[in-house]
Design a protein around this nucleic acid. Structure first.
Lengths: 191, 191
DNA sequence: CCGTACTTTCAGGGATTTCTGAAATTAATG
DNA sequence: CATTAATTTCAGAAATCCCTGAAAGTACGG
């Protein structure tokens, strides 16, 4: 890649902007967009040249992306530079991203909430605070578990489920009807 | 509320930090955490006093939270100040938050991708860029549609589905078996 | 309309984050 | 083990974001 076309630049630029709205800095977003779209793995100098920011910034950016487990890298015979690329599978990228955010943000939030919920309740006001924190804890905790669980599924299964969308509700009800028809309660059906 | 207890302060402080990792500033995060946890609606002066930052900052923060549709407010007889609170239902809060982010971040991203996909492909390299952008577009687009669809469901239905988690896969396969048992293809079953 | 109670706006200062370039570090090669 | 290639670190500059206080705006009650 000699230099960036208008289209690729727009793509890269947009993901820079998006990145800066999330925890990621603009340049890190751009580096990842570039690696995502490139048809060939790139080394740090390639990135420095194509995006024209400082070599050290690229180095730090790559390090950060690695800490998010978002990069694959390889070495080549007779070349001691490291070549980076994003995973082929878009699903994998989003999954990793989401999981890393879960670990960095959701888990610590749950810890703080758990601690707050352990504190003594001295006043009726405290009772109310406790209740609200509990509500939030329950929701976040459930979503967290759900996400961990859902990660087991393959991209294809996830795709099917997504296409199912709100229809899943009907399926759920149908399932419950079948169970009660068979004279079973939910509890009797183990896993 | 005369002043904040240690526990509430920890809660508020944490959501300030979390907010600053998302698009929201620290103080806006704190204001919302306070309004969320308070047992009684608060006016701007209450917030200024309890969190001790400037009145104007509180004003701007409330305005921003309103632009996210995250606040309810009320007026009281003989008091011209506006009193704010967060919705009672935690589900509603997260739903609103997610939907607003969808509108502010996901939709514009899809627009950019659509535009990029319309651009002419001049080289084999461009073909590759196109393919990668298409892959990303397809995934984001599907997730977007899915989320819009899922929003129709009630908190209870969502809870059931979440508890179902990865088991939903079995349900999906059961459905397909039922369909093929009935001699129907997916395509023949419209909605 | 005037005064009062409250809210909003916004320019500028302060704080934080991000980026750079020089120097240090690491690692491969002859 | 010296040389060279590549990477990383880090202090400070630059850019950005956030918050404040003063001033302007709004709206209600008399």
């Amino acid at each position: 890649m000699e230099h960036l076309s208008d289209t690729t630049w727009r793509f890269i630029h947009h993901f820079g902007e998006m990145g800066s709205r999330w925890g990621i800095s603009r340049t890190v977003g751009q580096i990842y967009a570039l690696l995502y779209i490139s048809h060939v793995p790139l080394n740090a100098d390639d990135i420095t040249y194509l995006l024209s920011f400082s070599r050290s910034n690229v180095s730090m950016g790559l390090k950060e992306l690695q800490s998010w487990r978002l990069l694959r890298s390889e070495y080549r015979a007779g070349d001691r530079r490291e070549y980076f690329k994003a995973p082929e599978d878009v699903w994998e990228i989003f999954r990793t991203l989401a999981d890393e955010r879960r670990r960095r943000e959701v888990e610590p939030t749950l810890s703080v909430l758990r601690e707050c919920l352990l504190d003594p309740k001295n006043t009726p006001e405290d009772e109310h605070f406790h209740r609200r924190m509990q509500e939030m804890y329950d929701l976040i905790s459930m979503a967290n578990e759900w996400f961990i669980d859902i990660q087991k599924l393959s991209a294809e299964d996830l795709t099917s489920l997504m296409h199912l969308g709100a229809q899943a509700k009907k399926l759920l009800h149908a399932k419950n009807r079948l169970l009660s028809f068979a004279g079973l309660t939910k509890e009797e059906v183990s896993e």
